[in-house]
Amino acid sequence: NDEDNSKGESESTVSTVAKAEDANDEVQEVKAKLAHFYSPDIFTYEGYELFADLVSKKSDGKIQFTIFPAGQLYNDANLPTAISSGQVELGATVAETWASNIAALEFNTLPIYKDTEHFRKALNSGIREVVSDQLATINVKPLIWTYFDFSYFASIKSPLVSPGDFVDKKIRTTGPLMAKFVELSGGTPVSIPAVDVPQALQRGTVDASVSGVTGFQSWKYYDYTDYYSGPFNPGLVLLSANTKWWNSLNEPTQNVILEAAKETEDFLIESHDKVTVEAKTFLAEQGMKYEEVNLEQFSEAIDALKEQYLSNAGEAGKQIIDIVEKSR
């Protein structure tokens, strides 16, 4: 039964491609859905609106993307399956959510990057290709890569700067590797729902929580935490397309979308840099103190973490780590 299904699918893909070849010099009429979970107050929201506008303009209105923002259709954790199974044509998610199926996609949650420059260089020196190949195996094609600022630990009472500071602290983390990192550094990783975090920090149910500076700003962390320390690991958001849908488009159509994607990516990077600086200034104004962390103090934990990553992520993971080392 399953075999029948997949055969049916591939046949239908072939036929659309064949149709596309008949008129391959013109942009096709395309309607598609784009889902993401960002609310209007975050710059990525604006970025994806721009993407839809650009695509429409460049195609004289032939390509129309309907955007479903703020998790209206899928939340971050469900979106990967939705894209890879073709329930939605396009979607933007945090890169590490793909780790459900491809362990190598957790690479950005490792605290092994010197700074944003280093991370960008590594991405552009081959990581994009490795990741794209991996995602292709589950019918996904990444189109827009948005770097996010590094994550930090926001903490009450005292900043977390050395492994000693982690001891006996309850720290809210969001992913397996970050939790492992906290544990290896002597802390207790805790997972609680995002909506519970403000109260948990305020009442001391947890002592610290991980997020980016824009996250601290929008969740009003400055109201109940005094410090943030880092940087630990960079964030990465991928806007990806389902490959079956992508392959059903002819070349001119794909080119229009790729062109718009490139412009959107530039816009997102630019806005990101601006927003991050603004957020840091804002947090300082609100009295949240920033403490820089020297990651060398954590080398033992980081090595163990790398090892665990490599054992899950296999060959692709090894390639990624090599690229990171070379771009240092």
Binding site: A77, A99, S100, T174, G175, P176
Partner: peptide
């Protein structure tokens, strides 16, 4: 269920339970 089984999909929790 069958697709989660064959794709070995895991959740995003720390202990990564197969879904």
């Amino acid at each position: 269920f069958w697709s989660s089984w064959t794709m070995k999909t895991k959740d995003l929790s720390i202990i990564q339970v197969p879904i």
